[in-house]
Design a protein around this nucleic acid. Structure first.
Lengths: 335, 335
DNA sequence: AAAATATGAGAAAGCGTTTTCCCAAAAAGG
DNA sequence: CCTTTTTGGGAAAACGCTTTCTCATATTTT
């Protein structure tokens, strides 16, 4: 294994000179720098990352903390899309990304361990595992971090998220503009943050003018279908339905088909996000979506900024939702 | 920051004793070990991971190499399910897992870099990026690795995979046992390894006794529907269809519905894998599936074994597929 | 009781960089 | 031409552990 010493000898310089040349320090002349670089190259010298990490007092790596388990990849593809986006951004900045499964219960232990053992420079944390205790820890220990998703309590954390509240508002606005007055909402359970914010946005937009029926269930195809059935048998049937996410929408679509309810002729449907099957459903779904990959890259970039300049403080940062109009919604049918 | 020195002073021993006690070396008496441990605990001592990594000449980390991009999380949830499984296994063995996006073109650079810079102890590599050149590199440099998926050429690599060929055979056997004689196969393109192995298994089982029609297209819902249309208009229409993956099956199902072909009454359908929506389709899909998460954990465990004892050599290792019978296939309709 | 062995603990040598000083030589200024 | 400043490069001190060697002391063996 060729080490810095070898390069130095071959170049007839000291090891500090080699280190400086390779790391682009201005205190070495351009000529020597070039010469050393070419020698190092020729010798196939790669600095030992373990030694660098130790000497630099920085790992140039961050860890991604989220709740992972069997089927998470299927149930929460967003999580991994974010991860992928983050990896891309971090790689560009020469940071490594490692993955750690944790829960809201043990996230503090994880974070504390990483901080104490100095095994990473920063944390990317999925909002679903963020607790008040963690918030305290992060600020007290001044751990560079970005929370992905909006933590559900006011705090001094740095977070970045799709603006789910605005998404809800957009969906509601859309249906209003199509003339709908009786709108049903298929929402997730109360502990489903994303669904909750969307619902808030919907309600704030619809509050006065419209009759809203809210149904709740798990964010699954099954429950979506069940809620759709309930909706169809309700006294004053809605003319449009907003599904808090794609799974609910798929279930809803299925229930409508079973009951020979045509979409969008008999009822309009609008949902959020952009799962790959969203454009393949029958009819293709109108959704309020965002670029999840981009959310990840932004989180990565932001985190690196925070690591590099501890003064740098982004309190929060939201990405804007946009309407992707397809064929599942339509002007209200007056007949 | 409390360091080993501080603990040693407080315990009235040398730092080597502390190190040994904490790392469970037998050369320290049980009493001293216990005493030191409790003092370290009390002082909140955490060894500096950067220093440990450096001193030990090992990072206790591995990197996962795969092709990642926008929508990969949606299109290949399996990849992330494997990743999650690997994380779980590695965590148990105290190894960290980091993620690196790469392509078949640059995978060698990545692997070489990691080896040279000693930034990880081993590699988990998705088969889709494995090239002959990489195989050479891995064996020449003796890089501990596990390939996930079967590399498409004979080599001395260590790989682990679901036995896709056997899965194909199982699917074919199932349809044969249900009395089908004319079977259509909706396969992916020739470069889709998984689909290819499945097809092989199907063909080897069906070769003599049965009439097979093979259709090819991309592994998407769209192409699945298209192939299904082709199948329906073919001269001697098949009584059963095997779809090389879930996406094709969904497309197929849709096309059948549009043409008022009932499943399984008019035609039987069987597919592979177990996407979460497989049990929610109409009718629920009969599939040949495996435990992808488990594939990941096995890969992780195997890799750690290879890292710890370089002599340890598993050439290959396959997980067994199993039939999950649902409602999309049935006895051939004789009428 | 002397010799051989086993045991517990410490001294010190790494591990391979980065980085902080420091100094000579060269350049600039008076 | 002498003094001051700049510039390029080297010496050496970290960085905080692990691990090998060595050595007393305690234990066993002869």
């Amino acid at each position: 294994m060729v080490k810095i010493q070898d390069v130095a000898e071959r170049a007839g310089t000291s090891i500090s000179t080699v280190s400086k040349a390779l790391n682009g320090s201005y205190t070495i002349s351009p000529e020597t720098t070039a010469r050393i670089k070419s020698i190092a190259d020729e010798m196939g010298y790669r600095p030992n990352a373990r030694a660098q990490t130790f000497a630099r007092k920085s790992t140039r790596s961050v860890v991604f903390l989220a709740k992972l388990g069997k089927d998470t990849a299927f149930e929460s593809p967003h999580l991994f899309e974010i991860l992928t986006g983050a990896e891309a951004a971090l790689r560009e900045k020469k940071y490594a990304l490692s993955l750690q499964n944790c829960t809201a219960k043990n996230v503090c232990t994880h974070a504390h361990d990483i901080k104490m053992s100095k095994s990473a420079d920063g944390l990317l944390i999925h909002a679903s595992v963020v607790t008040r205790e963690l918030a305290l820890l992060l600020t007290r220990e001044e751990i560079p971090h970005i929370i992905i998703g909006k933590p559900d309590f006011t705090s001094s954390l740095c977070w970045i998220d799709n603006d789910n509240r605005l998404s809800g508002t957009l969906a509601a606005k859309r249906l209003k503009s199509l003339g709908h007055k009786k709108i049903a909402v298929l929402a997730g359970h109360e502990d489903d943050q994303i669904s909750e914010y969307r619902l808030e946005g919907i309600q704030s937009e619809l509050a006065h003018s419209t009759h809203i029926q809210i149904y709740r269930g798990a964010s699954t195809i099954e429950d979506g279908a069940q809620m759709a059935h309930a909706l169809l048998t309700a006294p004053r049937r809605a003319t449009a339905v907003i599904c808090a996410n794609n799974f609910l929408a798929v279930g809803c679509l299925r229930a409508f088909r079973q009951n020979n309810i045509r979409v969008p002729d008999d009822i309009s449907l609008i949902t959020f996000d952009e799962y790959p099957f969203a454009k393949f459903t029958d009819p293709p779904l109108t959704t309020i979506s965002i670029d999840v990959f981009d959310l990840g890259t932004q989180a990565g970039k932001l985190l690196v900024s925070k690591i590099k300049k501890p003064g740098f403080h982004v309190q929060s940062h939201s990405t804007l939702p946009v309407l992707v109009a397809r064929a599942s919604d339509a002007m209200i049918n007056m007949t």
